[in-house]
Amino acid sequence: MSKLSVSAAFIITLTLTSLAFILDDLLALALLSTLSFALTVKNIKKVKWVYLLLLISLIGVLVNALMFSNKGETILMVFGLPVRWGAVIAFAKVSLKLLLIAGAGSWFILSYTPLEVARGLERELGLPKGVSFSVAYAFRLMPLLARDFKEIQDMRVQRGRRRIPLTPMDLASMLTPLLRVGYERAFWTGVAVELRGFRLRRVKREFKLFYKNGELQDFSAVGA
């Protein structure tokens, strides 16, 4: 069974996201957001917290609509506050835009691993190999950084500081050791990759709309 290529899926997702910015028509937004949501329904468990975050953000959208777009004919009264037609329209528009964005993004993430994305964008869309390498390296670095971050948090707690950064200076004191360790690691990885001839690496570029069976494989950019 063939599968849609990363580049084609990337373009579709980016187009849907851009449409969320551009479109102002409620019906079109409703159709597209329903479609994007339907694409993720099969694996909704994996992205359930995306929709949970979306629901939380809708509280802010509602407050915003009530504060700044509450104009026109009154539809109902909630705790003595008139809810007007303008607020309902504004809330519906922004909610549908956010649903469209979340649905499109979730569909893309559910379809491919980050390393497949890096490879696909490089080979099919002509993303510079260095940028693709940065993205691949970033994802390889994630578990190491998570471990470093936990250690920094533990050290802060032992020194009587906050575990979670709340002020810019808190943030600076957490980011500094995290980046210091990460920088050393990145520097020597970069040196090693350079010595292994990264600059000479050639990328075979070809645009594909679909992959045939087994054509989509992870790749190791770090080991390339």
Binding site: G130, V131, F133, S134, V135, A136, Y137, A138, F139, L141, M142, L145, A146, L175, L178, L179, G182, Y183, R185, A186, F187, T189, G190, V191, V193, E194, F198, R199
Partner: peptide
């Protein structure tokens, strides 16, 4: 002209802030 070290450093900044 970017070297591999530059790309790894950009990857590092990307992942730290992407996660934050």
């Amino acid at each position: 002209r970017y070297t591999s070290v530059d790309y790894t450093v950009i990857g590092l900044v990307g992942v730290v802030f992407g996660v934050v």
